[in-house]
Design a protein around this nucleic acid. Structure first.
Lengths: 344, 344
DNA sequence: CGCCAGCAGGCATACGTATGCGCATATTAT
DNA sequence: ATAATATGCGCATACGTATGCCTGCTGGCG
């Protein structure tokens, strides 16, 4: 009925109509116990009728809390922003979900690791905290993390949750997952197992997966030949190159554990080019269970991480930290998904 | 010199140190012409040294501009938030990129179509405008869009950019793309072309692709058999089901144009199960060029949309609208990507 | 020598909400 | 009946920035 759409209603408007003061409106809408039920309901009704909604900026300014978190992706090797790591995208789904559950807004941004995240997001009060997602050289990364900690920035990162990590970290049990992969390959009779992926301490997640593989092999008295490990960052091309290198070394192998599905997919391409059959000549197992894993020929056996749990844990851990009651670090389980690339 | 890290510096602190007033600091940092170069540089130096950053909430509150846009995904059929449409994810990359270029923050959220977007994002001043992304029944969608327009909400949507669309719309030239697909199939000698995807007006994008296909066929004097069109929403299962239906109809066909890659992938599975070879018995072409398209067996020919242009155009159009200088509607070109699923 | 223009910056205030504190009124204990 | 407690709400103010308006000063020009 001809309300002016020109200016949004404020809490003062509600207050006037309800015959109370503005602070009372604020309290009522936030559910304060010091407003009587009758008054609150009256205020809520009026607010609903006027289509009132709290001004986020004013609210955040006054309360010094934005109820927003920033999700920062960064990738070291890929300057091509169109090709986002599919694994992180699965994470995105899980994180948005949990933010929805907790009524948080989610800012997202793709960043170079060099950028000053904290300034842009936390100091400016855009967000209450940061979720950091990305692989990358850990030594460089670690410097940044230390800066963040020193700066008092609230953040959680996804990564290898070892003892010595910098800042709160949530991650899968990569060692256990590596063991899982190794045991599976051993169980189908493979003994000469190759590992494609960085195995040095600059990339702790991959290194942990490698360590798990070694453990599994050691448990049955098989040693892993260092010549069967080839570095590869997480990209299809890297996997392709690494597999070619592996083949060129002419050391016999009958299985590959790839540190990520993308690496595995690239490796399968190289194997096909070399005339090697999967799983006949070489069984192969990946990591992440990205959507494409079930589409390869043959479909790729892989390790699935607990995506749903990951988003939940990341968000919960961050919120806990913002509220100054830090949560103990926590590790997520993984699951083996058997497909035809390791059949028989 | 023992600054208190306990409280963030404000523009007043800067002002004091620079021997000017707070408003001058504000003007200087925003690059106002009415501050002398010398003063500005002095202020900038101090700000940098104190690690000052403008409080986003205060700034937005005062200026009534958040420099933030909200990206809203919604999907009708999929309640499973882990399986996001890969096409939209490519869009996400492109949009974040353009936001970065323009210095905008990006809020993202997955929503049910029923939800009251405008209230949550624009009325509360969380964002200056909305980008809407998602397929879905257009009749339901249209009601929502009309509400948004009536409400004066700033938004752009990705969709079929026809004459009669509600609100600013950015989209690919779907009719042209459909023609492209049709011409390609015709050029390799196929005449009995099936279409998998909704062809009715509830799903304008798919309908346009279908229309383009019809045009291409008509141009060479071939009629499309309505029995060769099967409804399918954009999901792999839907494609699988649709292809089975198609096969069950026992009408001969030698090519399939799938309205999306996901549909195409599902259809290929059904073809394989039915013992039909690709491209021997049936050539198949998809739409979107999602990453998985190059991994299928055989790799999938498809139509690539101009992702980079899409993000750019969406963001620019939205910003223009927020600044009250609406841009004319615009359509993006598409490109055929030939792979083996339509070889020979 | 006086007048006007233009530059640089200060003053006051607005943006809309949240919250510490104080003050009535209603309720219970003594 | 009075003092002590609780309940419900108003007052004042703070959060930190941006901007309209006004002022003082410098310089050029007639």
């Amino acid at each position: 009925m001809g309300r002016q759409p020109s200016s949004k209603p404020t809490s003062f408007d509600i207050a006037y109509l309800a015959g109370v003061s503005q602070p009372t409106v604020s309290r009522a809408l936030r559910g304060s116990r010091s407003v009587s039920l009758a008054t609150r309901q009256r205020i809520e009704a009026i607010a609903r009728e006027l289509n009132y909604s709290v001004d986020k900026n004013a609210s955040s300014l006054r309360s010094q809390r934005s109820n927003t978190i920033a999700l920062l992706f960064f990738e070291d090797p890929t300057p091509d922003e169109s090709n986002i790591n599919p694994f992180f995208l699965a994470m995105l789904g899980s994180i948005t979900r949990q933010c929805g559950v907790r009524g948080l807004d989610l800012l997202i941004s793709f960043q170079k690791m060099e950028y000053d995240w904290h300034v842009r997001y936390q100091d400016s009060h855009r967000a209450d905290g940061l979720i950091l997602l990305g692989y990358g050289d850990y030594t460089l990364y670690a410097r940044r993390l230390t800066e963040l900690v020193d700066h008092g920035t609230h953040f959680v990162r996804w990564g290898s949750a070892g003892e010595d990590t910098i800042g709160p970290t949530v991650g899968s049990d990569n060692v256990g997952a590596g063991r899982l992969a190794g045991e599976h390959l051993l169980s189908i009779g493979r003994r000469r197992i190759a590992f494609l992926g960085q195995a040095d301490e600059h990339y702790p997640e991959f290194a942990d997966r490698y360590r798990g593989l070694c453990q599994a092999m050691a448990a049955v008295g098989v040693a892993l030949d260092p010549a069967l490990q080839v570095d590869a960052l997480t990209a299809e091309d890297a996997g392709h190159t690494a597999a070619r290198t592996l083949i060129a070394r002419a050391k016999p192998f009958d299985a590959i554990f790839a540190a990520s599905d993308l690496i595995a997919i690239g490796a399968m391409r190289a194997l096909a080019e070399a005339g090697l059959s999967v799983p006949g000549d070489v069984a192969i197992i990946g990591f992440d269970d990205i959507p494409a894993a079930s589409l390869t020929t043959p479909p790729l056996t892989t390790i699935m991480q607990d995506m749903k749990g990951a988003g939940q844990l990341l968000v919960d851990t961050l919120v806990a930290q913002v509220e100054d009651r830090p949560l103990p670090p926590c590790t997520l389980g993984t699951r083996l998904v058997v497909r035809r690339s390791t059949a028989g």
